[in-house]
């Protein structure tokens, strides 16, 4: 078996191609994300504060959830070497620490001239509730990219 360390080039992508990634959002994810970004909104990091909001307990950063889109694009579809061009997301329902979320990314349009693909994205929690949806434009890796080119 020779697993290529490279994502799909545009010629190998079809409309309807789908990829998933699921993860239980842990407290360490939220704390680490707050540390990286400096986003310490009390809705997220302050239990006493959050108890008084209509969410009743701390919620997960919306952008942490949106970042799972980057995971699928960068590791699965198109995969390694892909570049995110733009995206658009709506946060529909809150996600709490301990929730398991699954992201689904689906190719809806292919633009060969500009080496880019349009993808729909949807995030569901363990109860089948949609928590985020949106779309994005991504550039898949090109055939000559990676180690060989680096050595050349």
């Amino acid at each position: 078996m020779n697993i290529e360390f490279k994502g799909k080039t545009i010629d190998k992508i079809k409309v309807g191609d789908t990829a998933y990634f699921a993860k239980t959002i842990s407290e360490s994810d939220v704390v680490q994300y707050a540390g990286i970004t400096g986003d310490v909104n009390p809705v997220i990091v302050d239990e006493e504060f959050a108890a008084k909001t209509h969410f009743k307990k701390p919620v997960v950063h919306g952008m942490l959830l949106a970042s799972l889109f980057s995971n699928v694009v960068g590791t699965k579809l198109p995969g390694p070497g892909s570049v995110h061009v733009s995206y658009k997301v709506s946060f529909i329902n809150p996600v709490y620490i301990g929730d398991t979320v699954e992201i689904k990314v689906e190719v809806v349009e292919i633009f060969k001239e500009t080496n880019s693909v349009k993808m729909d994205v949807e995030l569901m929690n363990q109860d089948g509730v949609q928590v985020m949806k949106g779309m994005g434009v991504v550039m898949p890796p090109t055939a000559d990219m990676g180690y060989e080119k680096a050595k050349a």
């Binding site: 994300y33 990286i36 970004t37 400096g38 986003d39 310490v40 909104n41 009390p42 809705v43 997220i44 504060f49 909001t53 950063h61 919306g62 952008m63 942490l64 949106a66 970042s67 889109f69 980057s70 960068g74 995110h84 733009s86 995206y87 658009k88 997301v89 709506s90 946060f91």
Partner: peptide, 28 residues
């Protein structure tokens, strides 16, 4: 990661303007 750069916007919204208690609805 592009999303890492975007997250700095989330920092402003959640800590400065409007600041603590803000809820993110959508982004583009």
């Amino acid at each position: 990661h592009g999303m890492l750069t975007t997250s700095l916007i989330s920092n402003i919204l959640g800590t400065i303007l409007p600041g603590p208690g803000t809820i993110f609805v959508s982004q583009n």
